[in-house]
Amino acid sequence: MNRPAVRNALDQSLVARLREALTSAESIGADVVVLRGEGPSFCAGADLSLLANHDRASAQTPRNHLSAIWDLTLAIEHSPVVFVAVLHGHAIAGGLELALACDVVVAATGTLIGDGHVRHCLLPGGGASARMERTLGRGASAWLALTGKFLPADDPVFAPWLRSVVPPTELDETVAAIVTSLTDVSATARASYKQLLDETHGSLSASDRDRELDAFDRHWLANDVPSALRAFLTKTREAS
């Protein structure tokens, strides 16, 4: 992901390019895709300036954009390719949702991880409500969801999920070792086992996507979320 100036916030172009990269990886028979973020952070979530441009008074919601993010995460989960997410800086909101869809996740020490949606009067729109509890458990997911707080990667709540938490200087070496371990086994067996794990977990579908996005739309239309986003963006620009 290469939008470092905005912490790789997910706009329409970036989501489309990620989906194209996934399709390309599958078409060439890639074994592993490593998902990383350029610059100071992995991903800070959906582009808030894009969301803020939707006119609530005209009953506009960013559902199409969020649906594209959801569909990307579904494609990652259902793909025979193994996805390794490499977190650093921030992995919050949509960034966390991308990571939750990946198969193996490693983080640099100091990475802040969180849901964060409620900080901006938002509900999730990229799968957090469907994936966070099954990955982190009820207690941790409820805390992250309902407070919007960010926790460091080495917090014990992430221990069952993160494969490794290492100093930034060791991140490349750790990722290389993970890729080697994944590619040392039978590709067909690995792909079939991934599918089995997905089905055993309770494979997510368009119905799960629509349930979350329906709730997002109801909340968006009942509250002046765009104004809250614009106020936050103005404050952030003035502070910088």
Rank of each mutant, 00 (worst) to 15 (best):
G126W: 04
V81L: 09
E26G: 10
P4V: 07
L204H: 10
E20C: 08
A108V: 06
S129M: 11
Q60K: 09
T174G: 05
A5Q: 11
G45K: 00
L87I: 02
A189S: 13
A140C: 05
G116H: 00
A16D: 14
R230S: 12
A101H: 04
S192L: 11
Q195I: 08
A101C: 04
C43G: 05
R63C: 09
K149C: 11
L87R: 01
A231G: 12
V15W: 03
D217C: 11
P40I: 09
E170P: 06
F150H: 15
V165E: 07
V33F: 00
D47R: 08
A52D: 06
K235G: 15
T174V: 02
H88Y: 01
T169K: 12
G39K: 05
W161C: 10
D71G: 05
E38M: 10
Q12G: 15
P160N: 05
L100V: 00
L48R: 11
T109E: 15
H78Y: 03
L221N: 00
G89W: 03
R3T: 13
D208H: 10
G39P: 05
L74Y: 02
D210T: 10
A159R: 12
V33L: 05
A44Y: 05
A108E: 13
A228C: 08
T135C: 14
S192Y: 03
R163N: 13
V82A: 13
I69P: 04
V106S: 06
G116E: 01
A191W: 00
S41N: 07
L197W: 08
L162F: 07
S67A: 15
T234V: 11
W161S: 10
A222N: 12
E170M: 13
L146F: 02
W70V: 01
P167A: 14
L204N: 08
L74S: 04
T135P: 02
R119A: 08
V157F: 05
A59F: 14
H54C: 11
L144C: 01
L50S: 10
A228M: 08
S129H: 10
H78N: 14
V81T: 12
D210Y: 02
K194V: 06
Y193S: 15
T236D: 15
W161E: 10
E38R: 11
T234E: 15
P62T: 09
A101K: 04
E20W: 01
H65C: 03
S164R: 13
Q12I: 07
A52Y: 00
F232C: 10
W70M: 02
G114T: 02
R134T: 10
E133K: 08
A52K: 01
S207N: 13
G137D: 09
D217M: 03
L51A: 09
T200L: 12
A145E: 11
A142T: 13
F158Y: 14
A30C: 10
V179S: 08
